[in-house]
Amino acid sequence: MSMKQTIEEKLGTRFEPEWLEVLDESHNHNVPPGAESHFRVTLVSDGFAEQNLLARHRAINATLADELAGQVHALAIHAYTPQEWQARNGTPESPPCLGGGKADRG
């Protein structure tokens, strides 16, 4: 299973999201091909309604703690309620890599 699939499966089980998108953005960064190290998650769930941004991100980070302790080096997170998601129309793009952290972990 690819890391992208692992992340999709774990987040899908934990949050039962209305919308979930996981992008492998590793190719934009200073890592070898196929590194599966940099990801972007967009997750829309009713469960976020009672949580502030910090709590939402912590819940996602905790669900992926094993992956973050291993090969996943960067995880961009966009966590919305269905109402917030409808109001926005999409997520911002990730920034370009600037070369720091070569061959090591964040």
Partner: peptide
């Protein structure tokens, strides 16, 4: 952050 505000070494830190 990674780097400094004027010389950031990571796109996320820069933004």
């Amino acid at each position: 952050m990674k780097g400094s505000p004027d010389t950031p070494m990571c796109g996320f830190s820069a933004r």
